[in-house]
Amino acid sequence: MRSIINYLKDIFWGVMSLLKGLKVTASYFWRPGAIVTEKYPENRKYLVMFERCKGELIMPHNDKNEHNCISCGICQMSCPNGSIEVIPKTIDTEDGKKKRILDKHIYRLGQCTFCGLCVKNCPTHALAFSTKFEHAVFNKALLIKVLNKPGSQLKKGVEQ
């Protein structure tokens, strides 16, 4: 007799537990407000990324096309993957002195692991992360970027 009661009890509790699970899933079926899907390409226009999002490395330029980079090479040294290469050049200033300025700041996006050490270690805050995250390209060579814009100069007043 006891075994029959246990048998029926088993069935009852088993069915109850299944019904509880069904209740959760069925309740979501009738609650379209809980949908979390983002319609990605459509929502591009109003998509706001978090400001600290590490999309890609950039060198901010102001409206006079000036940047902060003094081509010290600390970012290159602190990069664990060798994705940064700073190519300096020496020019003669007006007062006849020799000066080391930035020629090319090469950034290989394909190698970057977004650890953020370059941005953190930069003494002049010349580097930053942008929130742009759409990096897909058809040609691998396009992933090698030159961060300083053509014709850009060092901002006045940045320590050498």
Binding site: T25, F29, I35, T37, K39
Partner: peptide, 13 residues
């Protein structure tokens, strides 16, 4: 669609 709605998704769209 049913599975999408159960799983808080949109399904084919």
């Amino acid at each position: 669609k049913v599975c999408a709605f159960v799983q808080n998704r949109l399904g084919p769209n």
